[in-house]
């Protein structure tokens, strides 16, 4: 396997072999997490900066933990406590960081393309931890990792992604990743929450506004978080109606395949997009996804840091 990418800006453009290589490497790190001492010295002496311009707990913690488990020096940065608060622009912040000689930068920013903007301007490797509505590649990888443990191969398997796709970098990375692995992807949700030209961007997906019909023979369902703060934007009528049409309830689950894999990127609105009994039930891999998150982030940091001298 020849790994040729300096950065991870998105899952777009990665081949099935490359994705498989990432997942297989993550498998190895998943084993490290089980050890009495869950640390390896692989990235000793490397410095990685965690830049979070948007609030995030699980992703920033997961990256910090992944880096520490590899013995890298993880330096945290959040918008609230930095000079960004004093009006420093992104490029100046990046130059400041560059002069401190870091090996890698993990960035979360509300602006699509921000990870690429930085990647084009510094020597360090860059990992996109979510850039606006564009992509969230490590989330896509951890979804693949958690699902693969259950379904084995993705070839010909059906994934239904349910919910708010308009604001969804999680959905975009999932569509790209699962499709590249050979799965058939169906998008489901109220028409107002699905971008009108989504079918143009991804001609290989199906769009269906009827959850029951879309999920009938699904092998995997991914329930996305409804951003409650957006409910007054007029994009969907009411929480009650959303729940009636799209919530994955225990009753709905009974109509699906008995071994359907239930995913949710978190944080969950229990009782809105997913019922607690389903979220905590046997079909759910939601907690496995969180654990997979650390393993895939270890894999990507390791691969990007390791290839450095050969570039």
């Amino acid at each position: 396997m020849t790994w040729t990418h300096k950065h991870l800006l998105g899952l777009e453009g990665l081949s099935r072999d490359e994705l498989t290589f990432l997942l297989d490497t993550a498998e190895r790190f998943h084993e490290v997490l089980d050890r009495p001492i869950p640390f390896v010295p692989a990235l000793r002496g490397k410095t990685i900066l965690n830049m979070f311009y948007e609030p995030s707990t699980r992703t920033s913690m997961s990256f910090a933990m992944a880096g520490k488990r590899l013995s890298a020096d993880m330096v945290g940065f959040s918008k609230l406590t930095s000079a960004v608060q004093k009006g420093e622009n992104l490029l100046d912040t990046v130059r400041t960081i560059e002069s401190m000689r870091v090996d890698g930068v993990v960035i979360r920013h509300s602006c699509p393309g921000s990870a690429k903007f930085i990647a084009d301007r510094i020597d360090a490797f860059v990992v996109n931890a979510g850039d606006g509505a564009h992509e969230h590649p490590t989330q896509g990888l951890l979804d693949l990792f958690a699902a693969r443990k259950r379904v084995g191969s993705f070839e010909g398997k059906r994934l239904v992604i349910v919910g708010d796709i308009t604001h969804g970098r999680v959905a975009r990375s999932a569509i790209i990743g699962f499709a590249a692995m050979g799965a058939k992807v169906t998008i489901c949700g109220p028409p107002t929450l699905i971008p009108r030209d989504l079918g143009k961007a991804f001609p290989y997906i199906e769009i269906d506004h009827d959850f029951d019909r879309a999920s009938k023979d699904a092998d995997m369902v991914m329930m996305l978080r409804i951003q409650l703060e957006r409910q007054h934007t007029g994009l969907f009528p009411s929480i009650r109606e959303y729940r009636r049409l799209y919530c994955l309830t225990a009753q709905r689950l009974k109509k699906l395949k008995p071994d359907v894999v239930v995913m949710h990127p978190g944080p969950m609105n229990r009782g809105v997009e997913i019922e607690p009994a389903v979220a905590d039930g046997a079909n759910s891999v939601i907690l496995a996804q969180v654990r997979a998150g650390v393993a895939v982030r270890m894999a990507i940091l390791y691969i990007l840091a390791g290839g450095e001298l050969e570039r």
Binding site: M1, T2, W3, T4, F21, D24, T25, R28, V32, V40, P41, A42, L43, L70, Y302, I303, A305, G306, G307, L309, E310
Partner: peptide, 15 residues
């Protein structure tokens, strides 16, 4: 993961 020379060739060995 415990080597003291993390200079992996472009041809990555599968861990």
């Amino acid at each position: 993961l415990y080597r003291d020379d993390l200079q992996l060739a472009a041809e990555m060995p599968m861990v």
